[in-house]
C-alpha cells in the first residue's frame, strides 16, 4: 500500500480520475515537489488537453489550460514573460508526442528553462482509448482493434531516446509509478526537474510510465503488472541525458 499525506499544494477538489489511474499519484508527486521546494507561490503550471485537463483545479499555484499539444509553447511564453517564476507543463502522450511533438522538440532544443512532466500511458485516455504514438506493437485500442500493426501504424515513439539525441536539453529521465520503489524514484526525478529550473539549468523532461486501467481493460492490479511486464521492457527506465553538471555556454 502506498499511503500519502495530502500536500498543501493540492486543493480540496476531489480528483476526477478513474480508480487505479496513476495520474493521481503523479499529481501528488508534483505537488510534493512544489511543497518541498517551497515554490507554490512562484509556480505557474500548464495543463494539457487530455485526462489531466482539470489539473488546473488541483494544484494551488497559478494555472493555465493550453490547446492540445501546445503546452511547451505556452510555457515558453510564460517563462519568457516571467523568468523568475517556476513554469511546468503536465502532458499526456497524445498531447506531447503526437499533436504537440513539434512544440516538445523545439522547447527541448532551445533548452527552454521549464520542467515537463510527461505522462505516458500508451493510450488516449480522455477520448476513450484510441491508439497513442506510444501504444505498444500489437496493443489493442479502439483505433487499432486488431492490435497496433507496425507496418501501417508505425512503431511507438520513444520520447526520451529521441530528445536525448538533441544537443541542448539539460535533463531527460524516464520513471514509472507502478511500485513503491518506482514511485520513490519518480519523486526524486520530478523534484530534480524543478530544481534544475531553479538553478537555470534549462529543459528537464520526466517521462512517467502510467496506468490507464479503464482503457486498457484491466483491473488496477493487472494494469500495474502490465507496466512491469510490457511497458518497462519497451520503455527502459533511467536517466537519458544529464547535462546539469556541465557549464553550458
Amino acid at each position: 500500500m502506498i499511503v500519502f499525506q495530502k500536500p498543501k499544494t493540492l486543493t480540496d477538489a476531489p480528483f476526477h480520475y478513474c480508480p487505479g489511474c496513476t495520474h493521481g499519484i503523479i499529481h501528488r508527486l508534483v505537488a510534493e515537489a512544489l511543497e518541498e521546494l517551497d515554490i507554490e507561490g512562484e509556480a505557474i503550471g500548464v495543463a494539457p488537453v487530455g485526462c489531466a485537463v482539470f489539473a488546473y483545479n488541483y494544484f494551488t499555484c497559478d494555472m493555465v489550460e493550453a490547446a492540445h499539444g501546445r503546452a511547451p509553447a505556452v510555457a515558453t511564453g510564460i517563462k519568457r514573460a516571467r523568468p523568475d517564476k517556476v513554469v511546468f507543463t503536465y502532458q499526456g502522450d497524445g498531447d506531447l508526442a503526437s499533436i504537440g511533438m513539434a512544440e516538445t522538440v523545439h522547447a527541448a532544443t532551445r533548452n527552454e528553462n521549464i520542467s515537463v512532466i510527461f505522462v505516458n500511458n500508451a493510450i488516449y485516455g480522455m477520448t476513450g482509448g484510441q491508439m497513442a504514438p506510444t501504444s505498444l506493437p500489437g496493443q489493442v485500442t479502439q483505433t487499432s482493434p486488431y492490435g497496433r500493426d507496425v507496418k501501417t501504424a508505425g512503431y511507438p515513439i520513444k520520447v526520451c531516446e529521441m530528445l536525448s539525441a538533441l544537443d541542448a536539453p539539460a535533463y531527460i529521465e524516464r520513471v514509472a509509478v507502478n511500485s513503491v520503489k518506482n514511485v520513490k524514484n519518480a519523486k526524486r526525478a520530478i523534484l530534480k526537474a524543478f530544481e534544475n529550473q531553479m538553478q537555470n539549468k534549462g529543459f528537464s523532461l520526466i517521462e512517467v510510465i502510467s496506468a490507464c486501467p479503464t482503457n486498457w481493460g484491466m483491473t488496477p492490479g493487472e494494469a500495474l503488472n502490465w507496466i512491469e511486464e510490457k511497458m518497462i521492457p519497451y520503455y527502459p527506465l533511467g536517466v537519458y541525458k544529464d547535462q546539469t553538471k556541465e557549464e553550458k555556454p
Partner: peptide, 8 residues
C-alpha cells in the same frame, strides 16, 4: 501559443 502564454 507563446503569445497565449505571455498574455496569460
Amino acid at each position: 501559443n507563446m503569445v497565449y502564454g505571455v498574455s496569460s
